[in-house]
Simulated assay, not measured.
Amino acid sequence: MIQPFILSIVIPTFRRAACLEILLSSITSHLSYFPTDLEIIVLDNASPDNTENIVSEFANTFPIKYFRHDENIGMDGNIAACFNVASGRYLWVLGDDEILYQGTLNYVLNLCRNREFGILYMENGGFKDGQEGAIALRSIPENIKIKTLNSEKIFREVNVFLTFISANIINREEILRKIPDFDFRSDTGTFLPQMAWMYSALKIINSHIYIYTPMFGAMTGNTGGYKLIQVFGANLINITKKYFSEDSFNNANIMSNAVVTRLLPGELMHQFGSAASKSNFEHEDINLMIASCFGNNKYANVFLKGILSNSKLRREISFFGVRVLNKINKNLHYALL
């Protein structure tokens, strides 16, 4: 009898063969044997580089599956397809530019084998281009800080970082069992297709895991290809309202406050920095979009207006203020959102 996979790791990729090679090495290099209940899939969005050759080299030793689209179906189309190609009970979609710390995979596999959860969220550490070697040598500590939370509490603590695909593992099997007509493509076109399964897991399962110890490295300044405020303002808030319109706790308001305080300040400050530090976001009228999406948000009026100011001093004061707020909020488990 074929043993079912407990965990599917699916890696959507496009034209980043060098990054993918480092990720696959971090997954496989510390395995004394390949777990029979682990599935690894690379989902190639018609890359014009040597992605297929890189995967083939690893597949000579490890049973890595490779699927290639005939043509580029777009970033969020490829991400949405990850849910469909997987067959494991739990699904972990990893960005091709992440690096797992030594010990992370075995720790995560043991949790998937022995715990029942809807979402497993992991903290992570950022690294810059050129730091890959040091990150690949990093190990998780012996004592991992971990907590079980219900849906309301994990939403309040994780909030906007539920959108960070690599940090979240979801119970794919339970979603399909409780939602037989589940449409993994329902939010394609928003650049947030993963929220269909993230929010479904939150709604149908009320027990989740938060790992407070960083478990992998995520490259910074390596994102883009979409309009920042459109995606994390209009799109994310509308999706949140769609899934939680009848819930007792105001998730859309929490998410809006989280975007304004935890995500946008850092991203906007990066855009004022050196060209090398800027993410490759598509052009949009940032002031107009923020006014449209967050015009009535108290935190936006206090902090974002200052960060968007032409005055460097005012930007730095506003950014310092929101960092202080976030530190206080973290200690209060984000009760101020």
Rank of each mutant, 00 (worst) to 15 (best):
G189D: 01
A275E: 09
L149V: 07
P35K: 13
D70R: 14
S248L: 12
L288T: 00
E282C: 07
G224P: 08
L23D: 03
R16F: 01
G189F: 00
A136C: 06
D96H: 02
D187C: 14
L20W: 09
I286C: 00
P214V: 01
Q230P: 11
M122F: 05
V158N: 03
F303H: 00
R262T: 10
Y334Q: 12
I317C: 08
D247K: 10
A196R: 02
R138N: 15
F249T: 12
P12Y: 02
N222P: 08
Y121D: 07
A201V: 03
R16G: 04
G77R: 08
E98A: 13
K312S: 14
T240G: 11
Y90D: 08
E152K: 13
N60D: 11
D37R: 06
D247W: 13
N110V: 06
I135G: 05
K128H: 13
R138H: 13
F117A: 05
R177E: 15
N84V: 12
F182K: 09
L105Y: 08
L24D: 02
Y121G: 11
F182D: 01
N171Y: 00
R113C: 07
I179Q: 03
N53K: 12
P35D: 10
D285Q: 07
T213Q: 05
Q271T: 07
N78F: 05
A300F: 04
K178F: 08
K203D: 12
A17S: 05
S311D: 15
E246C: 10
S311V: 05
N159I: 03
L38Q: 06
I229M: 03
N250K: 14
S25I: 03
Y90K: 09
P265H: 03
P35N: 00
D181L: 00
I27L: 04
P265F: 02
K227T: 06
P265W: 00
